[in-house]
Write a protein that binds this DNA or RNA. Sequence first.
DNA 1: TTATCATATGAACAGATATTCATATGAAAG
DNA 2: CTTTCATATGAATATCTGTTCATATGATAA
Lengths: 118, 118
Amino acid sequence: MSTENTASEFMHIHEEAIEKVREITPPDETLYDLAELFKVFGDSTRIKILYSLFSSELCVYDISQLLGVSQTAVSHQLKILKTNKLVKSRKDGKHVFYSLADDHVYSIINQGIEHINE
Amino acid sequence: MSTENTASEFMHIHEEAIEKVREITPPDETLYDLAELFKVFGDSTRIKILYSLFSSELCVYDISQLLGVSQTAVSHQLKILKTNKLVKSRKDGKHVFYSLADDHVYSIINQGIEHINE
DNA sequence: TTATCATATGAACAGATATTCATATGAAAG
DNA sequence: CTTTCATATGAATATCTGTTCATATGATAA
């Protein structure tokens, strides 16, 4: 085994495996963003908020009461959801109505549900 | 407004909204499991491990070298991935080969990628 | 058997994160 | 204008989580 392909020297498997992995793996920055996105889904309060918005928009207070979580906590979590573009907001007088930003929220959550039901 | 439907008293919106949310929202335990699942995807090391297993099975040491992460860290993360049924393992002498457990891993990650690319 | 290699495990520590509390902003009502 | 209501924000705290270090297990080779 030569020293040309240093990448394969440590491999116990075929070196083609490394090539394939390198080919299909997105850049580190993308993987980091991806992990960040899933981190947002990885909290039960935020999951509950997203579910509450599945059928219609709701204002902060309604979400708070529906979930039995303090207004402050909901507000903090909504900010995280909005920063990550999972929800959008609309102001109406004193109220702020939140709704799902796009269909990816549905599909990601549904894929998760499918995995659980097995 | 009567006191019959206590659920709607706090709502600023129509009370049908509450009904709908209650209808489509899974039980708390499911939501908790769902958050737990996404939490597993919410770490860049684990995401990298999953990507490395997209094309073929790999042993712990190979993953470790490929990602530039310590063997111990990889081992810890593989355990988490296995506990959550995202990877499975096969023993071969001194080596333990890990591979993806099912297609949900692909679809969940791909949905995430799609959301990011917008 | 003994040494070595591959993996796993447990404790410890550092960094991240969700909630709470206090308070600020901002809009409508009186 | 002042009060009240809806929401947002920042600091503090307690909990959780990922990595490291030391070590254990388990299998092959010598």
